[in-house]
C-alpha cells in the first residue's frame, strides 16, 4: 500500500501519457511496408481454406526451405511415399489436383503447372543417363541441365526428382542455394543487377575494396 492514496494510478496514467507522445513504431501494414531483410522467409502458419481443409499440399518445400531444418511434417508426399512425424496422414495425403478439384468444385488450371508442358525432356534424360541417375551428383546434374536449357525449367526439376528418387524439395533447395543456377531464361540484365545489389558479388567487392583503399584508379 502506498502512503498517498491513488499514487499508483497516477504513476500508471503518467506512463500512459508519456508513451502516448512517444514516436510510434507500428507500421500500418499493408499501406506501409518495410523492406524485409534479404534472408527473411516469412512467418509460419498453416492455413485452412473456406471448406475447412488444410491448404498444405505436403510438397515439403517449407521443410526444405528452412535453413535450420526445424520444420518437418507427416503424411504422404506427392510421390506416394509415407513419412510419419505428426498429424494424421489423411490430412496431407491428397494429390494436388484432387484437392484443387474438391476445394473449388471444378478443375482449376494451376498456374504453377503452366510452364511444364512444352519442355523437351530428351536432353535431360541423356544427362541423367550420363550421371547414372545418381542423386549424389545433383549439383553436376543441375549444372548440366542449365547448360542444356539455359535455365532450370520447373518441369526438369520434377523429372530429375522422379528419375533420381531425390525429393523435389531437396533439389529445389540445392538449386536455390547456388547463385549461378537460375529459374528463368537469362533475358534480363536487370535481374543480374538486382541480384548484385542484394548479394555483394565478388567483382563489386574487389572494386569496393580498392576504392576503400584509395586506389580507385586500379581496375
Amino acid at each position: 500500500m502506498s502512503l498517498v492514496p491513488g499514487l499508483g494510478i497516477a504513476k500508471g496514467m503518467a506512463l500512459t501519457l508519456r508513451r502516448f507522445f512517444e514516436p510510434k513504431v507500428t507500421v500500418k501494414y499493408p499501406e506501409d511496408r518495410r523492406d524485409p531483410p534479404p534472408k527473411f522467409r516469412g512467418r509460419l502458419q498453416l492455413l485452412y481454406d473456406e471448406w475447412g481443409t488444410l491448404k498444405c499440399e505436403t510438397c515439403f518445400q517449407c521443410a526444405q526451405a528452412c535453413p535450420i531444418e526445424c520444420i518437418d511434417m507427416g503424411g504422404m508426399d506427392t510421390r506416394g511415399r509415407f513419412h510419419v512425424h505428426w498429424g494424421a496422414p489423411e490430412t496431407y495425403g491428397e494429390r494436388r489436383e484432387e484437392s484443387a478439384l474438391r476445394r473449388s468444385g471444378r478443375p482449376v488450371p494451376d498456374p504453377a503447372y503452366l510452364p511444364f508442358a512444352t519442355v523437351d525432356m530428351s536432353a535431360l534424360d541423356a544427362i541423367l543417363e550420363d550421371y547414372d541417375h545418381d542423386p549424389g551428383a545433383m549439383l553436376q546434374i543441375l549444372e548440366a541441365t542449365q547448360a542444356a536449357y539455359g535455365y532450370l525449367p520447373v518441369a526438369t526439376l520434377k523429372r530429375i526428382s522422379q528419375k533420381t528418387g531425390a525429393w523435389y524439395a531437396m533439389i529445389y533447395g540445392t538449386a536455390t542455394y547456388f547463385q549461378h543456377l537460375r529459374f528463368e531464361p537469362p533475358t534480363a540484365t536487370e535481374q543480374a543487377a538486382a541480384m548484385d545489389a542484394h548479394r555483394p558479388s565478388e567483382g563489386s567487392y574487389l572494386t569496393a575494396l580498392d576504392a576503400a583503399l584509395g586506389s580507385t584508379a586500379r581496375a
Binding site: K39, I68, P200, Y205, A212
Partner: peptide, 28 residues
C-alpha cells in the same frame, strides 16, 4: 592488404562486414 592514410578504417570495416554478412549462409 596494405591500407595507406587515404583509407577510413570505419568505412573499410563496414565494407568487409557487409560482404561477410551478405555471404553468411542463413542457417543460424
Amino acid at each position: 592488404i596494405v591500407a595507406d592514410d587515404r583509407t577510413c578504417i570505419v568505412d573499410l570495416a563496414r565494407l568487409l562486414t557487409r560482404f561477410c554478412a551478405g555471404e553468411a549462409c542463413g542457417k543460424t
